[in-house]
């Protein structure tokens, strides 16, 4: 039955993907990509990958739509139409060839859920056995992510940080080209538009009331996901996205400028770097206590308690970095008037 549900959802995904490619109206494409993300999360969930589904939920449902719309405000809504028929035929040929190759490759793949596959035989049983004894937390995914493969996650955090730096770098450039001389009337329109930009949805009662009511609960839930990641689905990446979503909601309601007054950009920049530094610092502390880099067992007298402390602290580092980067990207988009 699960397989039937999965195939059904995947079919819907294919249809949505084709529609995204087909439409030339980018606003519609953004809405459809939101639906695509929901379907993806549902698929992950069907396959019992709750942590991944939670990440997809937190990023895809809220933040990516906001960022896409921010990009659309800066550019335009209609896709520029340019393609020659020769290009189209070549592209179609390449895509068809690759599709056939991928379909051919799937014939060699093991059956869905087969316990005898190499993936299930290699390190997975070891992780499952060792987690109960050495780390003693119910969520094996968190144990793998934070402890067994702590180096990988540290790398991921730095990748997130680098991506954030790259985007801030791109957006810090001021556009000089393409500025057309403005008539008086236009500049007047521009200034009223700027006043409107700063306000958010402040003058709309229902979004105001509902939104303001929900922000504290979203923040609380974000903290729950952050610190409950050892026991249920969740962790730093998801929590960072949820907390960032709460602040973005505030920015949408009250205007971007007010959100920046609550959490200024220098704080966000500090969070971006601070989380990554916190993570690395845990590793260095482990080394000072005669352990290996990121060997949390030495952090406390009892190795299992040490593991718990290490996982909580590095997850906090991950959460801080993700929140900082996502909010910085949001402000970079929202704070810009023109591309």
């Amino acid at each position: 039955m699960t397989i039937i549900f999965g195939v059904f959802l995947l079919t819907l995904m294919v249809i949505t993907a084709l529609a995204i490619v087909h439409t030339q109206h980018l606003f519609v494409a953004v809405i459809l990509s939101g639906i695509f993300s929901l379907l993806m999360a549902a698929n992950f969930f069907l396959l019992d990958a709750a942590d991944v589904a939670l990440t997809e939920a937190a990023i895809g449902a809220g933040i990516s739509t906001v960022l896409f719309l921010g990009a659309l405000t800066l550019t335009g809504e209609a896709e520029r139409y340019r393609s020659s028929s020769v290009n189209r035929v070549v592209a179609l040929g390449v895509v068809a060839a690759i599709t056939l190759m991928v379909i051919y490759a799937t014939f060699d793949k093991p059956a869905f859920g087969d316990p005898q596959t190499p993936v299930q035989q290699h390190v997975a049983p070891w992780y499952i056995d060792t987690t109960a004894n050495d780390i003693d937390i119910p969520n094996v995914v968190t144990a793998v992510l934070a402890s067994f493969r702590g180096y990988d996650t540290l790398g991921e955090v730095f990748v997130v940080l680098t991506a954030g730096i790259g985007i801030l770098f791109l957006f810090s450039a001021t556009p000089t080209r393409r500025k057309k001389p403005q008539t008086e009337q236009e500049s007047e329109v521009e200034s009223t538009a700027e006043i409107k930009f700063g306000e958010g949805l402040r003058h709309f009662l229902i979004p105001q009331v509902v939104g303001r009511l929900l922000i504290p609960f979203i923040l609380l839930f974000g903290l729950y996901v952050q610190f409950h990641g050892d026991y249920g689905p969740g962790g730093g990446f998801q929590a960072g996205a949820i907390i960032a979503a709460a602040i973005i909601l505030y920015a949408l309601l009250e205007g971007e400028a007010r959100a920046l007054r609550v959490i200024p950009q220098w704080v966000l920049t500090g969070m971006m770097a601070g989380g990554a530094i916190l993570y690395s610092a845990v590793g260095v502390v482990c080394m000072m206590l005669d352990g290996n880099f990121l060997e949390y067992s030495v952090l406390a007298a009892d190795p299992i308690t040490g593991q718990h402390i290490g996982i909580i602290v590095i997850e906090a580092g991950v959460g801080i970095t993700v929140t900082g980067v996502l909010l910085s990207i949001f402000h970079a988009f929202a704070g810009r008037r023109r591309f």
């Binding site: 809405i31 939101g34 929901l38 999360a41 969930f45 709750a50 589904a53 939670l54 939920a57 937190a58 449902a61 809220g62 933040i63 739509t65 906001v66 719309l69 949805l201 709309f204 979004p207 509902v210 939104g211 929900l214 609960f217 979203i218 839930f221 996901v225 249920g232 689905p233 969740g234 998801q238 949820i242 979503a245 973005i248 909601l249 949408l252 309601l253």
Partner: peptide, 18 residues
């Protein structure tokens, strides 16, 4: 938890559209 995440976050996209 997952359903709760969606219930809390889903409408932010709608606000962004507004």
């Amino acid at each position: 938890d997952l359903a709760l995440t969606y219930a809390l976050i889903n409408f932010i996209g709608v606000f962004a559209i507004l």
